[in-house]
């Protein structure tokens, strides 16, 4: 089934493109691979440092701010940060299938599923993070009330903002995006089903 039976020479037109193809030497590709690996390592270091900073901050909070809400909030925060760290390490350890081994439709579906999972996962991890942060903030509001009365409404405002952003706005946004990818997966499945039916008819 070559496409030489196409009425116009779209094929010739098509072949005219790609004459200005970019060329990459093996050394260039090797260097780029090393740069990519270095970038990835830097990314993990930044993530790890952020996590360590959060853990250290909430650990210090636990010992220096004597308030029940802050104690519960900081303990939960450390646990959530630990969970995020494990999640990042598990993602890193995942072995990807070789791209030449997997066909196009299966790969596309896997990519859509991975993206959907990422949005869904992020939405509930943000909710998980919201609770301890809000508890800590409310604890701070109680604790600092005796030092400065102006800090209490400020802490309440921060808690309300955190609650709105992390427990409602961001998770809903990510759930909506997850829904978008689920719709695409459904469309792909529907197309596969209908083609399966037409195959049987043939």
């Amino acid at each position: 089934m070559p496409c030489d039976d196409l009425p116009d020479d779209v094929k010739t037109l098509w072949k005219e493109a790609g004459t200005d193809r970019p060329m990459f030497s093996v050394d260039q590709l090797r260097n780029e691979t090393e740069r990519m690996q270095a970038r990835r390592r830097r990314g993990y270091i930044v993530t790890g440092t952020c996590m360590a900073f959060f853990v250290a901050f909430y650990a210090l909070t636990f010992f220096y701010v004597h308030n029940n809400l802050t104690h519960i909030g900081s303990t939960l925060s450390v646990l959530v940060c630990g969970y995020w760290l494990i999640h990042v390490l598990a993602e890193r350890a995942r072995v990807a299938t070789d791209l030449g081994e997997i066909d196009g439709v299966r790969f596309y579906r896997a990519e859509l599923e991975r993206t959907r999972r990422w949005h869904r996962g992020l939405s509930w991890r943000l909710v998980l993070l919201a609770l301890p942060l809000v508890l800590c903030d409310l604890g701070f509001a109680q604790f600092f009330a005796k030092f400065s009365p102006i800090l209490t409404p400020l802490m309440w405002l921060t808690a309300a903002s955190l609650l709105a952003a992390l427990a409602f706005w961001a998770p809903l946004k990510h759930l909506k995006l997850a829904r978008k990818y689920q719709d695409r997966i459904d469309a792909l499945e529907a197309a596969a089903r209908s083609s399966g039916q037409s195959d049987r008819k043939d």
């Binding site: 791209l99 997997i102 066909d103 790969f107 990519e111």
Partner: peptide
């Protein structure tokens, strides 16, 4: 070759 190219490009599009 085509599988690798299409899969990389699909990932880029997503």
């Amino acid at each position: 070759v085509y599988r690798v190219a299409h899969n990389v490009a699909t990932s880029h599009v997503v």
